Amino acid sequence: MEQEKGVRFDLFEVYLIIFAIIVLICFACIIFLYGIMKKKTIDDERLDKLIHVGKWMIVSVFITTATSAISIGFKEWDQKLKEILFFDKYTERIINLTGPYIWNKRAQYSAYFSAVAPNGNIREGWKNYNKFVQDNINELERIKNKLKFLENKNINNGLTKKEREIMDSLSLKYDELNLNFTNSFTSITSSANRENLNGLVYIQVFGVEQKKKIEGFANSLRSKGLSVPGIENVEDKAKPPEVASVRYFYNEDINLATKVAEQLTSKGYKNATIVRLRGMEVAAGTIEVWLSKSD
């Protein structure tokens, strides 16, 4: 039973209190009978009746209460063990989460279980873990905001040496906090070094002429096994980079991005740069190609 203030009274604890009271009563009765016997203030017949009542209390009440307390104690222990096993199953599931925004997923699980778990160590554990998860989310958000500025600046080769060092340091910290997990949609690590590649490449251009010019590049990627959707003209939707860029989102995609950049360079886009971006919820193996206004 749980009261409004969150104080939980286990039936086992109630029985232990009753059991302790009965023990004290029995002990007091024994002392009382011993005193009577020593002083001989009542006759033997009445004394026998008192002793009989004392035996009844010990056998009928004392032993029965003790047996009930032990039985309930085992039942509650079994129930708590089942609760631990139940939550342990979800703990393993949370630990094995993969993909971007794993901390947000963990926050949802831990917030739910910190609300529905029984009072005690299990609930407190989930509350503490939820706070740990929230702290990681806040730290990742802080790093991501700084990286976003530096990575956008890096697209146009506008970073100073000091800024590049800061970006590299933040990138390492971001990957460490985010456990460097990728989505399980596509696995490209082993295939990136083969002639036929697996991956998804989006191409953004600025103008109809660029779209016609880049068709040969798109077909060459398709011939190597890459999926290349229709080329998107973003002339009125986005700001073009100063130089063409090949953008990837996970460490595991660096080889794939390099292969795409090599293909782009072979088609005449000599100044194309490779850029890592973070914090976007995309599948592993996703690459974006952006042409500059002058290409």
Score class of each variant (00 low, 15 high):
1 M>Y: 06
8 R>L: 14
8 R>I: 14
14 V>A: 13
15 Y>W: 15
23 V>D: 10
24 L>D: 05
31 I>M: 06
35 G>F: 06
36 I>N: 04
39 K>L: 15
45 E>I: 09
55 K>I: 12
66 A>E: 00
68 S>T: 11
68 S>V: 14
73 G>T: 00
78 D>E: 13
92 E>T: 14
95 I>C: 07
99 G>S: 05
100 P>V: 07
103 W>Q: 03
117 A>H: 01
126 W>T: 00
127 K>Y: 03
133 V>Y: 00
137 I>Q: 04
141 E>S: 12
156 N>G: 09
156 N>I: 09
167 M>I: 10
178 N>H: 03
179 L>P: 01
180 N>P: 01
181 F>W: 06
184 S>H: 12
187 S>R: 07
195 E>H: 07
196 N>K: 12
198 N>R: 05
203 I>D: 00
204 Q>K: 15
208 V>M: 13
212 K>P: 02
213 K>P: 01
216 G>R: 13
216 G>F: 12
218 A>R: 02
220 S>I: 07
221 L>R: 00
223 S>I: 04
227 S>A: 12
233 N>P: 06
239 K>F: 13
240 P>L: 11
240 P>D: 05
252 E>G: 09
252 E>S: 10
256 L>S: 01
257 A>C: 10
261 A>F: 03
264 L>N: 03
273 T>Q: 12
275 V>M: 08
278 R>V: 09
283 A>G: 08
283 A>N: 05
285 G>L: 02
291 L>F: 07
292 S>L: 05
